[in-house]
Design a protein around this nucleic acid. Structure first.
Lengths: 234, 234
DNA sequence: CTCACTGGTGTGGTCTGACCACAGTACATG
DNA sequence: CATGTACTGTGGTCAGACCACACCAGTGAG
């Protein structure tokens, strides 16, 4: 076996990936128990656990204790799961400059709203609507407001149906929240800014609803870069 | 301590993330040893190892055995590291449809070449050039050719300087290679297709070099969607 | 007969202790 | 002064032991 040149947990990961690729494991299935997997692959249980942990953080599986059909490690493959942790930690380690995050948002979100506006079937924007109402109806702290704001942008990506873009936006979300919150002290007036943000959100939705792709694109781009410019973040 | 409601490895991860955010840890630094970290946080060494493993797969650290300054867990924060593993496994678990990957490529790469063409300083495309030469100079298998092809597209993102987009493209790379290779049997003629692909690559670079952003955008989009259409992949 | 309880069983979660291979370093030795 | 060897500390791995948990089957009382 060529397993000896890899680290033990890598052989476990590779084995599971192979099972996934060849259809022996599909979403909804349960992984063998940690002890069984360890015996099967000839490694220690701790090595199996390290691989399991990686899969869990990457959003591929969900683990639960106890017994019965819902216990154990279940393949879920939820798209945004791992991307979120990844972006969050990369930002923490200064791997990703804020300016690049903003630029990437501009590109991704412009494409999202363009597609939404041009969609043949009216996309379901109920989730996005609900978030806007939540932002408008209550007195929120800045952090709460910005959290909903970021979630609104992710919800647009979800509505577009593109799972890759959705995962990327979900990953970007915490990074977005982070810089948005860091920029609040640089604002002239938070009440004024938040009021403007809410109007801009409405404008974006309205443009999408009226299938005006170009207006939607411009609205979302000025929304994003406007706030970024206003916060004077480096 | 509120650590008790989380799993032990999560407290380790959170602790390291906090140190990262507050500047106590920066790229290039070494993490405390696994044993020391375990004692400090009041958890077992195996829990520390699970957190370390996650950080390693996410591309945040690099581990090495032995002793001396280069041993241990060192913070590297290499951008594309984790994204690659993430996309690869998500694709394996059928979390990401091929069509969505293609659409995302269209968006990201169009933005990349547009920015390259419009850059004030002539971007450094030597790496991309070298890849093209490698593709043209030798007799390559289909898999080798497509691997270089995918790498070429990543190199364009690198040249653009946007680290977030670069990481995303690096993550998409293996997914791209995968569907590109899977589509080869559906082609009418591989020699004809590969010849066309090489011409299109040259056209993209030429458009960028002549700072014709619109031409570059169209060239890259037709390049990507053309091949995808030709392979008849679902 | 029905229902509550209670043990059994198998799951992930964690800790401990032990050993290995490795690489740098300090020290003894020529 | 040069060389080599033992030491030390690192990650990598394994084995075994517990725990908490959740389901499930039996068993008891009503």
């Amino acid at each position: 076996m060529p397993d000896d040149d890899r680290r033990a947990w890598e052989t476990v990961l590779a084995h599971i990936e192979t099972d996934l690729l060849e259809g022996r494991l599909r979403p909804g299935d349960r992984l063998p128990g940690e002890r069984a997997l360890a015996v099967e692959l000839g490694v220690g249980r701790s090595s199996v656990r390290e691989a399991i942990r990686v899969l869990e953080v990457l959003g591929l599986i969900r683990t639960a204790t106890g017994s019965g059909p819902s216990a154990g490690a279940i393949i879920v493959a939820l798209p945004g799961g791992g991307m979120s942790a990844l972006m969050r930690l990369q930002m923490a380690a200064r791997g990703f400059p804020v300016a690049d995050v903003v630029k990437t948002r501009l590109v991704l979100e412009a494409s999202v709203v363009t597609e939404l506006a041009g969609a043949p079937n009216r996309p379901d924007l109920a989730g996005s609507e609900a978030l806007l109402r939540a932002m408008e109806s209550r007195e929120l702290t800045e952090a709460e407001f910005l959290a909903l704001d970021a979630q609104f942008h992710v919800s647009l990506a979800e509505a577009s149906g593109n799972q890759v873009v959705t995962a990327m936006m979900a990953g970007l979300r915490s990074a977005i929240e982070g810089y948005a919150r860091a920029g609040v002290p640089g604002l002239v007036s938070w009440p004024a800014t938040s009021a403007r943000l809410m109007l801009e959100h409405r404008a974006i939705l309205a443009a999408v609803a009226s299938t005006d792709a170009e207006a939607a694109r411009l609205a979302v781009q000025s929304h994003i870069s406007g706030y970024y410019a206003e916060t004077h973040l480096t």
